[in-house]
Simulated scan of single mutants.
Amino acid sequence: MEVLLAHRGGPFWSKRDLGAWSMPKGEYADDEESEAAARREFQEETGIEVTGKLIPLGTVRQHSGKLVTAFAVEADIETTDFKSNLFAMEWPPHSGQDKLFPEVDRIEWFSLADASNKLVAGQRPLLDLLSQATASAASAERCSGQ
């Protein structure tokens, strides 16, 4: 099993690797379904539309207090064909000039072990939830004879 992770864009993250990757994610309004938000945010951060059934993994609280509700999907996604949305920030600091940076500067597939090292600490519990969900799905398939 592999996990698709997104490397955070912008100058603060450009030279960081371990602990600098994230699952594509974003915020959503109270009146938006979490699954619809997950599909929208994935497309905004990667330019790739997620099709297929999403598997709910659960919710974790990051160190910042932010809640992250995650989903998994079985998909074959090419990592070279992505286009992230942009954000503006003053750069260099105190220059008075805003520059645009991609929210995500690259996406890559990782094994669960490698993903654990790459992910920001607050999202690492999602890998355990992913392992549990896939183990449950495999067990259900064996029980139903599929």
Rank of each mutant, 00 (worst) to 15 (best):
M1C: 06
M1I: 12
E2T: 06
V3R: 01
L4E: 04
L4F: 11
L5M: 09
L5C: 04
R8Y: 12
P11H: 08
P11R: 06
K15F: 07
K15N: 12
R16D: 10
R16A: 11
D17F: 09
L18F: 12
W21P: 02
P24Y: 06
P24G: 06
P24V: 04
G26F: 00
G26R: 04
G26W: 07
Y28S: 00
Y28T: 08
Y28A: 02
E32G: 09
S34Q: 06
A36N: 11
A37P: 00
A38I: 08
R39T: 00
R40E: 10
R40P: 00
E41Q: 15
Q43F: 13
Q43T: 12
T46K: 03
G47V: 01
G47F: 03
G47L: 03
G47R: 09
E49D: 09
V50N: 05
V50E: 02
V50W: 07
G52H: 12
P56V: 05
G58V: 07
K66E: 03
L67H: 09
L67C: 02
L67F: 05
T69F: 08
F71Q: 04
F71Y: 06
V73E: 02
V73H: 03
V73T: 10
A75D: 04
E78L: 12
T79H: 05
T80Q: 14
F82L: 07
K83V: 04
N85W: 09
F87T: 14
F87N: 10
W91L: 02
W91Q: 06
W91D: 01
W91T: 01
P92G: 04
P92R: 01
P92Q: 02
P93F: 10
H94I: 07
G96H: 04
Q97L: 11
D98G: 13
P102T: 13
E103A: 13
V104M: 00
D105C: 09
E108R: 14
E108D: 12
F110G: 01
F110A: 11
F110T: 04
F110H: 14
S111C: 05
S111Y: 03
A113E: 15
D114M: 09
S116R: 15
K118M: 14
L119S: 07
V120Q: 14
A121I: 07
A121D: 08
R124W: 06
P125A: 01
L127V: 03
L127Q: 00
L129C: 01
S131F: 01
S131T: 13
S131W: 04
S131V: 11
A135Y: 00
S136G: 08
A138M: 01
R142N: 04
R142T: 10
R142G: 05
S144A: 12
G145L: 00
Q146W: 12
